[in-house]
Simulated scan of single mutants.
Amino acid sequence: MSWSTVPAREFARHADAWAALHAQGPATSLLALDFVAPLVEQFGRPGDLLAIEKKGTAVRAMAIVRATRRGAWATFQPAQAPLGLWLQQPGLDTEALARSLLGALPGFPLIFALTQMDPMLMPRPLDGACVRTLDYIDTARVTLSGSFEDYWAQRGKNLRGNLKKQRARLEREGVVTRLQVDRTPEAMAQAVEDYGRLESSGWKADKGTAVHAGNAQGRYYRAMLEALARRNAASVYRYYFGEQLVAMDLCVEDEASIVVLKTSYDESVPSNLSPTLLMREEACRRLFDEGRFARLEFYGRVMEWHLRWTDEVRTMYHVNYYRWPGLRRLHALLESRTRPAPTPTTSL
């Protein structure tokens, strides 16, 4: 196997190769060229590399990688990317590719990690002499088959009853709800600005993590959504109480799935109303009725509200590839020694 590396800032020169390789595998929007290129532009650092593996002239694998600490490299993993930025042709040996890349990276690294891998897209490998997998998070999805009525009837009585009561209250108060979906490139700049206003009015503003049209996050989401919308692969859901914007979803799409990347809501809405859940109910009804997608994906850490929406949960994972078997054993030993001891229990 023959890997070469170039600075990640040269990604645009290799964009066609990335797009062609992406089309050969599970073509998730989260690894599409239009999703990845703005990540590199807005969140890349000097020293990040684009790694390319070829057999002859055929590109068989690509990855964007970053040195994470002395002796360790990993796939580039900004917070805005649900998946590690790794592509390979289907059927290739991932372990062999990763170990070969480990030998090609500068500085004689001892560990290379594939981060935030989805077992639905890349089967989780078995642990081995130089391989160790680690759970990352549980994530949820909704399979969009059958009718919405059948799906909704399987949800808990508390969820269905609570949202029904909220809708009755809004109707009594004369509040008309409205779901608006925008898909055009021209709509995305305003969508990011609106989303930023919602998020900046809440707790994320205090922590400095809110999306804003003028910060790197805002520039990323605008560029990415505009690019994907040009090929009908992005959507923005807005939910209104009358004329008040109360909730938003930023979504990306591929042939099989729609992914909710970001959700925000107006925290000034009374706490006994749930604009996000009301929006989600209407959005799900529309997705079931349209029949365009097989799955609705969330990709975030499973929360309590996800489990009211679905029982489809899977575990995402990381993989560490070690230069030597002894290093893998040492790493596992050191981690076990630093892991908190279980709390003892006593019997009466």
Rank of each mutant, 00 (worst) to 15 (best):
F43E: 00
L101V: 08
E10W: 00
A72W: 09
T115P: 02
L245H: 13
E226N: 09
V236H: 05
K262D: 02
R66N: 00
P270N: 05
E312T: 12
E149F: 06
L102F: 08
L277D: 08
E149S: 12
V269S: 03
Q42N: 12
V269G: 02
E173I: 11
S147K: 12
E199V: 09
E193K: 13
N158T: 09
T177H: 10
L121P: 06
Q88S: 15
V142P: 00
A63W: 00
N272H: 12
R222S: 04
R231A: 06
E243L: 11
L85C: 04
Y221V: 03
E304C: 05
L333H: 07
P275E: 13
V6D: 01
D254W: 10
A205F: 10
K204N: 07
R301I: 10
E243H: 15
W305S: 15
F288N: 04
A191K: 01
L287F: 12
L39C: 05
L327D: 01
G107K: 09
Y195P: 02
A168C: 03
A15D: 04
D206V: 10
R219K: 14
I111Y: 01
L278T: 10
L296I: 01
A27L: 01
A294F: 02
G44Q: 00
L170G: 04
Q42A: 12
A37G: 11
N272S: 06
A51K: 00
A72F: 07
Y317S: 03
P275N: 13
Q154H: 11
D254P: 05
V260C: 15
R160L: 07
Y237F: 13
L307H: 06
L327G: 03
A191T: 03
W86N: 00
D93W: 04
P119N: 05
P82S: 11
Y220D: 02
S268I: 08
Y136K: 06
D16F: 09
K157W: 08
E53W: 14
A12P: 12
I137T: 12
L126M: 14
S2F: 05
L110E: 09
L225P: 04
Y237T: 06
G242L: 05
G208Y: 13
E253H: 02
R301L: 12
G84M: 02
L97V: 09
D182E: 14
T57F: 09
K165H: 08
Q24M: 06
S264P: 10
R230F: 05
D254Y: 07
G300L: 06
A332T: 11
T310A: 02
G326R: 10
S347F: 15
E255Q: 14
Q42K: 13
V131E: 04
A63M: 06
G161I: 08
M122W: 06
T28I: 08
T94W: 08
A81F: 00
K55F: 06
T315E: 11
V131F: 07
L105H: 03
E186S: 10
R69S: 15
G202N: 07
A256G: 15
V302A: 15
G291S: 03
L101G: 05
